[in-house]
Amino acid sequence: MHDLLRRWFADVDRLLRGDATRTELLAERGGLEVEVRRLLGAVAALCVCYGACMGSFSLLKDVPPNLAGTSGRVMQVIASMIKTPLLFLLTLVVTLPSLYVMNALVGSRLRLAGLFDLLVASLAVNATVLASLGPIVLFFSLSTNSHPFMVLLNVAMFAVAGVMGLNFLLQTLHRLTNLQQLKSPHLAAEAKPVDAPLESLAADQPAEDAGQPSDQRAAGALDMPPGQALAHQTRLVFRCWIVLFALVGAQMGWVMRPFVGSPDLPFSWFRERNSNFFTAVLVALGKLLFGD
């Protein structure tokens, strides 16, 4: 078990450090090479940790007399631990086919397996950032009574982690596209070389402003590769897909609620199906600012 966990997290660590997505390595291996099963295991474990932090909100709260007992609160923690990894995996399952079709339509050379690897890698980054925010959520869960605040805090944490994960996805895609263009002779003629001098791209702005690593330092997982931009259509497809992923993820979260669990309501695995995520966020904001 210890060995398994170590291998899972070693893979995640390679992704976070950018070691698995270095241009030279991608070129050598002909694409992104990750152990998908291990990464999925790590994603699940990290999401379970965050789910526990999220579900702990009702643990120390006063509950109405008719809800006395701790079993409902413990069940909420368990439910959140189960539902958080499911939330990510189901969102991926729902959005992957549309991404693949759009991707193929605009002529990207990424195959389904390659696309899946890339998305799982980006989910791993997303889940790691989310889990690293877990202690903050746990701290607020245990120290605040405001349910709307906790809902909004969790939405903010998911948003931060999502931005990081999707940024990783786009930057890795840049690198993969560079690789494909260099492999293809007619595309390579149009493409700037991967190792084009940085000054040519950022002549009138400092390297850090261009968001690019200088050759003095190692490129991070979120750094733009030098000297190249993604094909317009592919970039558009991925940007549209990111919006779709965020919308589906948000609504999936709504369908699978409660994750935080209100101490005033009895435990249930799911709530009745009404309204939507965005209305709920506005309602929570209203409650937070104006009271019930």
């Binding site: 660590d13 976070l16 450090r17 950018g18 980054v125 790691t128 950032v129 889990a131 690293s132 925010l133 877990g134 202690p135 903050i136 701290f139 990081m164 990783f168 690593p213 330092r217 190692a218 490129a219 991070g220 997982a221 979120l222 750094d223």
Partner: peptide
């Protein structure tokens, strides 16, 4: 409490 997030962000940023 803030340190784990800082560690992951440091790694991710490179």
């Amino acid at each position: 409490i803030g340190l784990p997030s800082f560690f992951v962000l440091s790694t991710l940023v490179g």
